[in-house]
C-alpha cells in the first residue's frame, strides 16, 4: 500500500477538524475537533515514519498525544469553569476580550 492513501486520509481528517472548529459554536465540540486535527497529524507522522524506516516519527506521535492530553485537561477545565459561573456555553457569546 503506498503512502498516498495515508496522507489523503490524514488531510481529510485535518480538514474535517478545521471545518468543525470554524463552524461549530460549542466549546466541547471545538475541543473534539482539535483532537481530530492533532490525530490527523499523528497519522501523517506515523505514516512517514514507516516510509522512512526509523522510529523518530513515532516518538513525535507519542509526544503529540501527551500534549493533546494536557490540552484536553486545560480545555475541559475551562469548560467546567464556564459552566459553573453560569455563562453561556457558546464561544460567540464569550467575547470579553475584544479590543
Amino acid at each position: 500500500m503506498s503512502i498516498e492513501w495515508y496522507i489523503v486520509l490524514s488531510s481529510l481528517l485535518f480538514a474535517v477538524g478545521a471545518t468543525g472548529i470554524l463552524i461549530r459554536r460549542s466549546p466541547v465540540v471545538i475541543l473534539l475537533c482539535l483532537e481530530l486535527m492533532l490525530n490527523a497529524g499523528n497519522l501523517a507522522l506515523i505514516a512517514f515514519s514507516r516510509m522512512v524506516g526509523n522510529q523518530e516519527g513515532q516518538v513525535f506521535a507519542l509526544i503529540v498525544m501527551v500534549v493533546a492530553a494536557c490540552e484536553v485537561v486545560v480545555g475541559l477545565g475551562l469548560i467546567v469553569a464556564i459552566f459553573r459561573r453560569k455563562l453561556p456555553l457558546d464561544v460567540d457569546e464569550l467575547r470579553e476580550l475584544r479590543g
Partner: peptide, 18 residues
C-alpha cells in the same frame, strides 16, 4: 488599526490562523 482585528470571536481568530 490593530484593535479592529481583536473582535473577541474565537472562531474568527481560528479562521485567521488557518
Amino acid at each position: 488599526i490593530v484593535r479592529l482585528v481583536q473582535s473577541g470571536f474565537v472562531r474568527s481568530y481560528a479562521l485567521l490562523l488557518i
